[in-house]
Design a protein around this nucleic acid. Sequence first.
RNA 1: CCAGGUGUGGCGGAAUGGCAGACGCACAGGACUUAAAAUCCUGAGAGGGCAACUUCGUGUGGGUUCAAGUCCCACCACCUGGACCA
Length: 810
Amino acid sequence: MDYVAIEKKWNKIWEDTKLYKFDEKKLDKKFYLLEMFSYPSGANLHLGHWWNFGLSDSFGRFKRLQGYNVFQPMGFDAFGLPAENYAIKTGIHPEDSTRHNIAIMERQLKAMGAMFNWEYEVITCNPDYYKWTQWLFVQLFKHGLAYQKEAPVNFCPSCNTTIANEQVVDGVCERCGSEVIRKNMKQWFFKITNYADELLSGLDKIDWPEKTKTLQRNWIGKSVGAEVDFKLENSNEKLTVFTSRVDTLFGVTFLVIAPEHKLVSKLVTKECEKDVLEYVEKASKKDEITRTSTTSPKTGVFTGSYVINPLTNEKVPVFVADYVISTYATGIVMGVAGHDARDFDFAKKYHLPIKQVIVEKGKKDTALPYCEYGELVNSQEFSGFTSEEAKVKIVEKLEKIGAGRFKTNVRLRYWSVGRQRYWGCPIPIVHCSHCGAVAVDEKDLPVVLPHITDYKPDGKGPLGKCKEFMQTTCPKCGRPAEREADTLDTFVDSSFYQLRYPESLHNNKEIFSREYVNKMLPVNCYVGGIEHATMHLLYSRFITKFLRDIGCLDFDEPFQRLFHQGMVLGPDGKKMSKRNTSKTADDYVNTYGSDALRLHMMFSLKYIDGGIWNDEGLKHIKAFMERVERIVLKWHKEKGDSKNYGSAEKELDYVLNRTIKEVAQNFESFSFNSAVARIMELVNAMYKYDTLKEKNAELMEKTVKDLLVILSPSAPHFTEELWEQIGEKYSIFNQRYPSFDASKIVLDEVEIAVQINSKIVARLNVGSTLSNEEILKIVKNDEKISALISGKTIMKEIVVPKRLVNLIVK
RNA sequence: CCAGGUGUGGCGGAAUGGCAGACGCACAGGACUUAAAAUCCUGAGAGGGCAACUUCGUGUGGGUUCAAGUCCCACCACCUGGACCA
């Protein structure tokens, strides 16, 4: 069979007959299968694309055979930095290169012959798409979840632009090498933190990999603890600290405040002023990356002030130190050197006392073995409790004296969405000198991104230089006003795209029609890389919950089930690139055909884990396909005539039904390698049966047809062709996945292992329908076994049906 | 440092607590062939034995269990994230 030719043939027929068209009238059986859309890089479709799209397409085909109305749309995440950087280098406008690249990728993706529903395509840089990105922004703005705030950004003075964290390498600009400075600028943020609790609890009801859920949990970083107020000596001012270890309050020997903290100026005494100011000045120059590196030494300076521990009334000194960050919790930390590594380092450096609290009776805090350095302290009042109980008792006491309370903090920060870049979705905001920041009227959306030629980043947003764009009137008061020059982070574009896919065909006046979208979503199965665990996957969940709250959606989790593909690596174990791969996907498709490539990918590596690409097996997969072809065509031609149904038939029937059952299970868990293995076993069984002279015609026919249907998701063109060659009606993808006959998966006889004292001593064949008692009787009557157990007492008999018998004797 | 994950033949990889190594590759042997390739069949974890057979085996050490690759504890190695989150 000429694989390359038949693939062209069937791709055309599938397209001409619109075989995979999604049926909007049958939404009760819909299955929304989504693969994370990709950035149009313009490179040739590489093996990674095949791995991602090809294999999830096989899953989609499997769901189709199960009778589902599969919705598998495709689109492009088209805004973003790479096109812009490319433009700065080559002078080709981002819009032109992006359109060009999309055209290339569309053509190649279509050539894959996958079931993509192209009529529903979305492209995030199209005004009819980003109209809704802006609509979403306006909703968030109206509900107080989008707002502007001064915040530090990385700024390269030589390139005159803000740059992303990833572009700062060792505190230096990646492109020009000059030192990056931190600069405060007004930035747009989304208050994702309002949903922190829900983002956490929602994880319990979705079918996602545990690993991904853990990543999100840690990222949100919920910390349960307490706030404690320390009164300043000789003043009414108090310093509030947050701690998750309030049970160590007896061990506090100092307090530490972040250099940027507002209260620092109030704490500093005359004698210490010079040192403190110097330290604060130095700290403000350090960028966050150096400051937060583990290796940097813990430095600080005494403020001259003391505070009173509300529980012990002890007087402890207050220090300023940059190991405390101002943005988390209260920006002030109590120093317990006996229980915290950082506090310990700090105390040693500045010769502060180290105290270790006996937190739990008879138990030392295992976190830090610092006892040798410090004094052991204990409290009569709280001894005898576990540390968790002590925490509660202590906070209750603090509450009574008005010096503390239970408190929960999250590490999750506001989502910064403003970008001082050209190639993104314009923020639909007008700045008016009278009304302030005003949202553009919904009826005036989209705010179209102008086609400008000077898109070089300038630190303020290149759109600012485009007068025609910037000059407008205030939607509220009608006075002349200016537009916002920033564009949106591309993660905003992709935070709701799964909602737009079903709607993109209809072009309604609303973002989506409520009834329809609530029937189409949530996405039943989402496939994509784990690298998006704490970005895209978190942002989409946030936006979905927000849209539910404003009454648009009836559900609050966008993706019911999630799978991550592993990565296909080059021979050097590194990510595939032009450097380490000599062959492209096209090379393989043109020699072996796409079905062989797909089957080989399915079989040779675990989908979830990925691994190093090896093309050696491709020729063997091709051989396997030829083996299938031979037996299928032979049995089709031969047509046995015997009607008898003996043990050989039973055996083949057994393998067939077991394969039907297990391949379905394997597909459901994305264990494609095992699914292919089971199909190979079936083919082996067919060859074994083929050696017989007398064959059962009905069984042969059923086996051939079932084999083709079972194999069709994994080798679509190949099986479609064979389906036609054996004279069946187009298309194999309108067939149903065969159901198995449970009674056929029962063998007449099974081999059981016989153990004496848990050691295997024999293997016996027994009837599979026998009861445990009958099996035991046979085992004990066996010559060899009875010899082994004669004269001994049987203490215990364990029978595992169809598996083994274990006799415990003495 | 911290968190999470992984560890099974020469290789990719299978195993709801129940006969470890399915399936495939590489390997060896046989059939077909003048021959090779292809194809079909057979063998195969490692060690020992002519053999029947036997010992050891899922990173290391312990534990639970009649039974552990699988569950629990500790450790080692590798991979991936996060960076001082109080």
